[in-house]
Amino acid sequence: MAKSVHLHSNQDESPGFFRGALMWRGSVTPRIMPILLIMSCYSLLLVLTDHYWQPLPHLDVTPFEYTGVVLGLVLVFRTNAGHERWWEARKLWGGIVNQSRNIVVEALQYGPQDFAWREAMVKWTIAFSVATKESLRNGKDFESLAGLLNEQEIDELKSAEHMPLFVASKLAFLIKKARMGHQHIDGFEFWALEGQRILLIDFIGSCERILKTPMPLVYAIKTRRFILIFLLLLPFSLIEKAEFSTVLVFSLVAYPLLSLDRIGIELQNPFDIKNLSHLPLHIICDTIKFQCLALLEQSQVEHVFNFDQSGNQVCSA
């Protein structure tokens, strides 16, 4: 699974022109190759029919020049709409990263001096990002949480109706416990922590909006129907002058059209690991995990010693 994720996840563009132009991995070319071959064979069949069997009607190329421009605009709009969804999803996950950092920093700095409570806040904050990732991908792989949550907690998380909401409720319980406990936090600190938790829920809701609201079907149908009609009629305008070169010219026109259509599809769901250039959510979750655990470790070190009013270190133990 990790290998598959690495192969298809978004990666930096190659600085070399030829290497970038000829890259196979991460390109839509393998996914459009079957339909491109079928359409090219169709154009070859028309050329052979016209040359060896019965002349076919020939069309003027001028109408295709105008309709090609319109078709290009339609496909660019579709690609831009897909990229907008991809970029919005990335910004939402940037928000999840920031809110996870905020809630951990506030919990460690302003929360009760109770290590068990602090550890629980950190581990459930980390669990939120992983639960969100698996919820968006319709999976239940919590291997990265094995060292943080025990088996019972992981089983409860897996069996939850809505996994991110289950984790958010755990955080709400811990924040309430800090407010009502012996070393309670004041109202300002309580609402600061609650505000960060609420924002986490807002982010998962926005991600689910992208996931569950695909591009309008009527638009997708009309776009592909336009492409199909254009490609079916295009050879009739090329055969008279291009003859056997029609297949090459047709393929050069069909390739970018089919590629742009496929790119629009690939970008619609930025969470699915089957799509090209999906968001590297596993890397983002690992970043949250490592940084939050580092904050917890730093907090432990800071609380080993206290400082008296004269500035001398006094061991808290």
Rank of each mutant, 00 (worst) to 15 (best):
H51K: 00
V105R: 14
L56A: 07
Y66E: 13
V69P: 02
E88F: 15
P57V: 11
D60F: 08
D60M: 12
S100L: 08
R85T: 06
V97P: 03
L92E: 04
N98T: 14
T62Q: 15
E88H: 14
Y66H: 11
L73R: 01
T62A: 14
V70D: 04
V61H: 11
P55M: 08
G95P: 09
W86L: 13
E106C: 03
V61P: 04
A89C: 13
E84H: 14
A89W: 12
V61F: 15
L73I: 12
V69G: 00
V105L: 13
E65A: 12
V69M: 10
R101M: 04
L73D: 04
G68T: 11
G72S: 06
E106P: 01
W53S: 01
T79P: 01
H58S: 14
V104C: 09
L71T: 06
T67Q: 10
G68I: 13
H51I: 00
H58K: 12
N102G: 09
S100K: 02
L92V: 14
A89D: 11
I96F: 05
W86C: 08
E88V: 15
A89F: 13
V70F: 07
Y52I: 03
V104G: 02
L59H: 11
V97W: 00
G82Y: 02
T67N: 06
Y52E: 00
V97R: 05
G72L: 09
I103H: 01
H83K: 13
N80D: 11
N98A: 15
L71F: 08
R90G: 08
R85E: 06
L75G: 00
V69Y: 06
E84F: 15
G82V: 07
W53M: 07
T67W: 03
R85N: 07
V69S: 02
K91V: 06
Y66C: 03
T79K: 00
Q54L: 12
L59P: 05
K91E: 02
F77G: 08
G68E: 11
E65C: 10
L71N: 02
L56E: 04
T62H: 14
A89P: 12
V74D: 03
E106S: 09
V97T: 13
A89K: 11
L59S: 11
K91Q: 06
V76Q: 02
T79N: 05
L56S: 07
W93H: 09
R90P: 08
N98S: 15
I96Q: 02
L71R: 08
I103Y: 03
A107Y: 03
V104P: 02
E84Y: 14
A89H: 09
Q54N: 04
I103P: 02
Y52Q: 00
G82W: 01
R101L: 06
I96G: 01
E65Q: 15
H83D: 09
E88W: 15
W86S: 09
V74M: 15
R85A: 08
R90E: 05
W93I: 07
G68M: 11
L73P: 00
T62P: 01
I96Y: 04
V104M: 04
G68D: 10
R85W: 12
G95S: 14
N102I: 09
F77I: 11
A89I: 15
N98C: 05
Y66W: 14
V69E: 05
Q54R: 12
W87H: 12
K91L: 08
Q99G: 03
